[in-house]
Design a protein around this nucleic acid. Structure first.
Lengths: 230, 230
DNA sequence: CCAGGCTCCTTACGCTGTACGGGTCACTCC
DNA sequence: GGAGTGACCCGTACAGCGTAAGGAGCCTGG
């Protein structure tokens, strides 16, 4: 029964549409909600229908990374100074732009880190970064080391260790366990006491953006010295 | 039926025994094999019995991190020079020792990065690192930035982006896709050509240990300059 | 002696990814 | 024009996951 004239209305599934829906779903409801059934539901389709456009769930995850990195590639196009004159500035601008994109997809780092193969978008992005270093006078060897040293930071993210799921109560919680153990952890207690009065007090004192830039500049400076050293 | 005199023989389940078995299982068969049923089977027990010693699977994962970091804490005890005289050497020695421990548990980084709360072992380890920086003359503020900059490297690991599951064929595979796209990715192609003749050729040219130390020294040097700068 | 509480087991539920076997459409080619 | 062909989608089913609920045997304290 049920005349399926709605086929056109649903405008036909494509790999692209599946992947965009997956990104959208993860953005709205988190990575855990990204299941094949839920994704299919989002596209008003049955789960098994997805398998005609993607090989399996891994392929979906590969695909969403492709989409997100595509966003990055688009966003970084043309930003920053001329690398031949200021490679540090050029690299810095690109990486901070990439970070802005990833802040819109907080689930993406977790997915990216579980990928084992590159895709065209990623390779292209890295090739661009490498081009900046080369324009700045880097040897292939030093550039290679530099890219490794940047690691995931090159894509604009670093995974914070033990960041509480709920920053609201998480900070206070960590604070409490720390205070009651101040005797056994003198240095942490000291650091806490030192920074407590200059900020709001809880572990929310860590400014992600500032820490990211601090570490990035540390690395860029270090690379610059290696470059000057020859 | 089945007289259960074997209770003593199985020497009674404890939280500790569960966690050690979990670490052992992950070491032997990988993280994917670490399921509640499989773990129970390892301990010659039914899955639900585990829940009398651990709250749930998350608690198991918290626990294995605790065990692994415990190994690290034991391993780093007393290694390296006196931090008051050589904080860089002291920090370096500790971190490289931690790395050795984690190389024995290749699945651990993935678990560690998904934890949201600290445990006593971790806090203790970090307090020790902080102590080294303080002995080296760091302000609490700079030490804090430094710890963030080190990130997971402080525990001896960094997650490589897109490292192939099978390094054997993975490198050659990446190589192949790269070669055929040399035109569109000139810098990567150039780097490949440059390094190909000085090593075995495939992407196995990346020496993890060397890259880790390069980046670590970059950061330590950078911190030293910030320290000297005041 | 026996009540209570650990420990452990059995069963079952809802969820996951996905293999398999269709059914229905748009199109192509004789 | 009618038959075939392939793309697309669905329904059902299975094995495996984490874990809630309840029951059985043993150890210990009153």
């Amino acid at each position: 029964m049920a005349p399926r004239t709605d086929l056109a209305a649903r405008s036909a599934l494509t790999r692209r549409r599946v992947l965009l829906a997956a990104v959208d779903l993860a953005d709205r409801e988190g990575l855990a909600a990204l299941t094949m059934r839920r994704l299919a539901q989002e596209l008003e389709v049955e789960a098994m229908s997805l398998y005609h456009h993607v090989a399996n769930k891994e392929a979906v995850l590969d695909g969403v990374v492709e989409v997100v990195v595509g966003e990055i590639v688009t966003a970084v196009a043309g930003v920053g100074p001329d690398p031949a004159e200021d490679w540090q500035g050029a690299l810095r601008a690109r990486i901070l732009t990439a970070r802005q994109v990833l802040l819109r997809h907080p689930w993406a780092p977790e997915v990216i880190e579980t990928r084992t193969a590159m895709n065209a978008e990623i390779v292209g992005y890295f090739d661009g970064l490498l081009g900046i270093l080369r324009a700045g006078g880097f040897s292939y060897d030093l550039a290679h080391h530099g890219m490794h040293a940047l690691g995931s930071r090159a894509l604009g993210f670093t995974r914070e260790l033990f960041s509480p799921a709920d920053p609201e109560t998480g900070g206070a919680e960590a604070m409490a366990t720390l205070e009651q153990l101040a005797g056994t952890y003198p240095h942490l207690a000291g650091m806490l006491a030192d920074t407590a009065h200059q900020d709001d007090g809880v572990l929310g004192w860590c400014d992600d953006q500032a820490e990211f830039e601090f570490a990035l500049d540390l690395l860029l400076d270090g690379l610059d010295r290696r470059l000057a050293r020859g």
